[in-house]
Every structure is written in structure tokens, then in C-alpha cells.
Design a protein around this nucleic acid. Structure first.
Lengths: 257, 257
DNA sequence: GCCCCAAACAACGA
DNA sequence: CTCGTTGTTTGGGG
């Protein structure tokens, strides 16, 4: 379950290693989720070269020199591999052979999803979201729980169940708060926390696993972290189901309801 | 808020007084809920005679000699009137003049709804429902609350918030029970209670207000009755919101969850 | 932990 | 107390 910061690091490393490589063949698992036919995918990518690899929300966007783009969502257990012996990778869902090496997307659960040339999303990415947008959506969904709000990918792209807990702790907002009841100045804090928690995490991951294209790092998380029992400020970390998800929080966070 | 038993008595009395009368004119409030245009309604009913008046679910179905049918739903506050001076009736929504007298449907809230020649419903009426149907629908909605189930007009037509409490008390089923957890033999009791509570109520209303076409009688209800504090068997009546509705029940009722 | 869908549930208006 | 619509929540399956 890579989230935004993991994917951001993966994207830089994938781009560094893959940019300029040409796709010689495309193999995909018949059962993969795909918005076109496997045949269309093959003909769209074969002989094109990789121009860029970027993160978009929780997806990886591969841009090709022929203007094709392929979005890959890893879901819970998907992984990227770059290998000269693709046959050794288990649970291959998609394999692009790129000359001497191959890019493989694997997933033991088979839930990886691919989109060829998707229409571009109107939902802002969490790293780019602006205060005006956030306030407008909050006013449209006054009664929605703040945790459900932040992880709703139709409102904001990229935040998942781990980082939402980090962001809410950083902003000192209790996860069961209702967005319409959060005062304006606390929404400001929230906006800042979204950006800072995510960019700090990206920096941390780069420091700890500079080359990663699949392994995620989570042990530095401050509250959403089974290895910790207290927050950095010494308050006991509690867990509870919120918005149907396991949630880590402390009493430092103010409940707005 | 007439429910099935009230409407059943109204229908007999309306039929006795209106059968054979011919519609000379049709006037309806512009804002009325109607599945056709007011013009179509007029042309469909003018010069036709009333052949029958029957209850169907919570609606009154007027059958005409030209095969037209008009379904009237009284919603919360609608009423029928038969009068030789229709002008005296307030909040008229629909007025059929029938020679010497007129049938008026009034509603101070304007929520009455009319359907001309509706397609016939595949949902059984509560007085006709069979055990096989009930068991099938229960198995399809195992987790639905029994109160929500019984008043859901897409599953069973005719039961409203007052009589559902009577039926559940009679069957000794707690209103917060979940249908999938109710044992088969108790579902049998429930089926019997549906029929007996409703038909007994029809008999009682006929006894107390034999001529009624609009006044409802409720004071004989055994638990859904603000004037009573204990059930016929002496248990304190409690009230609580269940399925978003005020609910009267006692501890005699078994909770199946 | 992810997303999608369907069902259940709540809130509002008419 | 009625029904409809809309949006939200929840649970199951992939």
C-alpha cells in the first residue's frame, strides 16, 4: 500500500532508470483491470519510448514519446520491478520489455489497475491543492467526517489511510471531526499540514531508501505506526475504527463536531 | 396519515356513495403531483362514471367505466370529502364534480399525489402477502432492520409507522431486530400478525366510525398510542427512534440480532 | 492497506 | 406522519 510519498520517490527513480528506453514488447495478464483491450495496449506502447514517469494521485503515470500515457495503480500489493530476467518475478500483471531489461508490475492479489490514455482528472493532487478549493469542497460537504473527506479520492487525490492520520495529528484535528465545524484558521493549519507531512515524508524516504522503486518506508511515521506507543510529544497513541478504517490518534487532537 | 385499515374502510364507504356517479368536471391544483398533464387528466375522466373504489397499498384506486383508473395517495394530511358545496372545502387539490355533489381531495400541505393509469405494481399488498414471498425477500435483505423492512413500500405495500409497531408487538419481535436473524417459526407469527392486526383494525374502525371517508381512528392501538402507558399485558410502553421513526415497543418483544 | 459497487441509512423538501 | 431525492456510510468482492 504505497501512498503518495512512496510513489513520489518511486517515480523519480523509475524515471532515472527508464527514461529513453524503448518498449519492445508488452505482455499482460489476461485478468488485469484495464480500460482497453490488451491488443490496444500492445499496439499503443510497442516501439514507443518512455519519456517520463510521474506520480499522479496514487497512480504512476508513464508518458511515452508517441504521446501515449499509461497510468498504473498498485492497489494494496502491487510492485514495480526492473530486471534483466523477468521470468523470475512472481505474479506478473504487466511486463514491458525494454531491450536488456524489463519493467514488470507484479501483484499477488491481481488487483493492479491500468488505464491507457485516461482523460485528465479534475480532482487536485494533494500536493497542489489550494485553500480556495478545499474551503469550497468543505462548504459543499459540511457534515462529512474529516478523515473520510481527506481520503476520498474524488475530492483530493493521493492521501491514504496512513498519511491521513499523520496529517490530522500534525494539524491537531481529531479524526472524528466533521469538516463543517472546523474553524477557518484550523483549516489553514490543515492545508499546511497536508503539504508539509507529505513533502517531509518524501525527503525522509529519499534519505532512507534513495533507490527504491517498490519498497516503502513507514517506520518514521509519528502516530500511524504500530511500533510506537506515544506521539513525539509523549501522548499515548490510541486506535479505533473511523470511516471504516483503523485509525491512530492521540488526545492532543481537538474534536470539532 | 391514514394507513391501510383506515383506507380500507374509506374505500368501502366511498364506493357505496360514489359508484355509478358520472364525472362532469375535473379541477386540479396546478401544483399537484401528477404523472400526466392536468389536461390529460381532465380528458381521461370527464364524462366517465365511477365503477369502483378500492384500496391498493396506501393509495385509493378509483376505477372508471371507461377503464381509466386514478390512484390517489393522501400522504400525511390529505382528506376525501363528498359535498354539495365544494367551495367550502379548504386546500382543494382535486375536485371531481359528480352532478349534485362533488368528490374533493384536500391537503393543507399540498403533498397529495395522483397517478392516472399507473402500471400495476408487482409489490404485494400487506393483506395478500404470502409466506414464500416474505421469506424470499428476507433472504435477499438479511441485514435489514425488521421495522425498515416492513414499512418499505417497495417490498410490501400498505404498512406505515403506526401499524408496524402494532404488528411487531403482536408478533413479539423487537423493532430493532434484523430480518435475517429471526427464526422461521417467528416469521410465521409475523405473517399471521400482519394479517390479523390489519383485519382486526379494519373491523374496529368499521365499528367505531362506520361511515368514515376521512376521519381515522387510532385510539384502540395497543402500543403505538400516546394515550397508553402500558401494553394490554401490562408492560411499560417505551419509545425510541428506529429506522428514523418514532417507535413504540415493550420489553415483551424479543430482539433478534 | 486499494477501489468499486450495492445496499442501508440519514437529511431535506415538498 | 408521507414519499422522493440526494449524499453518506457500510460491507463484500476483486
Amino acid at each position: 500500500m504505497p501512498e503518495l510519498p512512496d510513489l513520489a520517490v518511486f517515480s523519480e527513480n523509475l524515471q532515472a532508470r527508464l527514461q529513453g528506453k524503448t518498449v519492445h514488447s508488452v505482455e499482460c495478464q489476461r485478468a488485469i483491470r484495464l480500460n482497453t483491450s490488451p491488443e490496444q495496449l500492445k499496439s499503443a506502447l510497442c516501439n514507443a519510448s518512455i519519456a517520463s514517469v510521474r506520480r499522479a494521485g496514487k497512480e504512476m503515470a508513464f508518458g511515452f514519446t508517441n504521446q501515449a500515457t499509461l497510468f498504473v495503480h498498485l492497489m494494496l500489493k502491487g510492485k514495480f520491478h526492473i530486471t534483466s530476467v523477468p521470468a523470475t518475478v512472481e505474479s506478473q500483471m504487466l511486463t514491458l520489455s525494454l531491450g536488456g531489461e524489463s519493467l514488470v508490475v507484479s501483484d499477488p492479489e491481481g488487483q493492479v489497475s491500468l488505464k491507457l490514455n485516461p482523460s485528465l482528472s479534475s480532482v487536485p493532487d494533494a500536493l497542489e491543492v489550494e485553500g480556495t478549493y478545499l474551503r469550497r469542497k468543505i462548504s459543499e460537504r459540511r457534515k462529512k467526517g474529516v478523515k473520510a473527506f481527506l481520503i476520498d479520492q474524488s475530492l483530493l487525490r493521493g492521501i491514504g489511510n496512513a498519511y491521513v492520520d499523520e496529517i490530522l495529528w500534525q494539524a491537531r484535528i481529531a479524526p472524528k471531526s466533521v469538516v463543517g465545524k472546523i474553524p477557518d484558521h484550523v483549516i489553514e493549519d490543515l492545508l499546511i499540514s497536508i503539504k508539509s507531512v507529505l513533502t517531509d515524508a518524501i525527503d525522509e524516504i529519499k534519505k532512507r531508501k534513495p533507490e527504491t522503486i517498490s519498497e516503502e518506508v513507514r517506520d518514521f511515521l509519528r502516530v500511524h505506526n504500530p511500533k510506537r506507543s506515544v506521539s513525539p510529544t509523549g501522548h499515548r497513541i490510541m486506535t479505533e475504527q473511523v470511516a471504516s478504517r483503523i485509525t491512530y490518534f492521540t488526545e492532543e487532537q481537538v474534536l470539532y463536531v
